[in-house]
């Protein structure tokens, strides 16, 4: 039984936690504010910015006009969504087989798959870079999609496996007793029950791929650069254009922030490989 807590205590908790939450969130809030300012206003003292300057959408337009922001945005979308669905295509049969037709070595295979995720990217940077160079894959969306698919494949398989595992065997047996063939069992019983798990797998992997900043920085130049690499070009001296940097940043993180909020719970499972639920 949850114990009733006095409102006074609750208010105190809210105040402390709210302050902490505000401080953590403040940098994001701040660039949101700056993105609606002119460059001149954006470098004034914080209080002046808040209370004595106007609001404008100019920075968003400027970012698009000067650097074809939309192209990089679409690169990010293509690469993250593409790698996720490509991964799903390969992972679903594998996870399904391991969850429902377990063999003696299934556990070893799973652990081995996970171990590939532990390989530090920098350890294989040179070979991948050279292979990409020789096959003309540097700075292409296809190449990057493939790499991100590979680095997230273990997570996708692992997540799907844990979700499939949770579907009680008795339900599948009931379907069999009810006369469902294997195909019908998959279509009418298994898939509908697995959809929530697949949805959160997709969400988490799009997030991870969107924010991936080792391969995207090292394997792209201009053409296929997703937002991670595009934003890095603000490193200097363009970073001093606060309003434009803010506008570009806000556009880059907004979609993921929204998706992330929806997938908080699944995030834990995905990121800990089921070790914490």
């Amino acid at each position: 039984m949850a114990r009733a807590v006095s409102n006074g205590k609750k208010i105190a908790n809210t105040a402390i936690a709210g302050t902490v939450g505000f401080l953590m969130f403040f940098p994001i809030l701040w660039i949101l504010i700056l993105s609606f300012k002119t460059e001149e206003d954006a470098i004034r003292a914080p209080l002046e910015i808040l209370f004595s300057s106007g609001w404008t959408m100019d920075s968003f337009a400027a970012v698009q006009a000067r650097s074809d922001y939309f192209k990089h945005f679409m690169n990010s979308v293509t690469i993250s969504v593409g790698s996720t669905f490509l991964g799903l295509l390969i992972a679903i049969p594998a996870a399904w087989a391991m969850a429902f037709v377990p063999a003696k070595r299934t556990k070893d295979v799973l652990m081995w798959m996970l171990s590939t995720k532990m390989l530090p990217p920098v350890g294989v940077l040179i070979p991948i870079y050279l292979i990409f160079r020789d096959f003309g894959l540097l700075d292409t969306r296809i190449g990057l999609t493939f790499v991100l698919m590979m680095i997230n494949l273990p997570i996708i398989i692992w997540m799907l496996y844990t979700y499939f595992k949770e579907i009680p065997g008795e339900i599948l047996e009931a379907a069999r007793m009810d006369g469902a063939s294997l195909r019908e069992e998959v279509i009418y019983v298994l898939t509908p029950m697995a959809i929530p798990g697949m949805a959160s797998t997709v969400l988490l992997n799009i997030i991870l791929a969107w924010n991936e900043a080792f391969w995207t920085l090292n394997l792209t130049a201009a053409k296929a650069a997703p937002l991670t690499a595009f934003i890095a070009s603000y490193s200097s001296p363009e970073g001093l254009f606060y309003a434009k940097l803010s506008a570009a940043s806000i556009m880059a993180i907004a979609p993921i922030l929204i998706m992330g909020w929806f997938s908080q719970k699944q995030l834990v499972r995905g990121l800990t490989f089921g070790a914490v639920k």
């Binding site: 009680p168 047996e173 009418y188």
Partner: peptide, 21 residues
């Protein structure tokens, strides 16, 4: 014979109802 062909019906301990239907 596979389960479906035996003409038997089963009630499971956990009921095994299809949660999405």
């Amino acid at each position: 014979l596979p389960p479906a062909k035996r003409g038997l019906a089963m009630v499971f301990q956990s009921y095994a109802l299809y949660p999405h239907m």
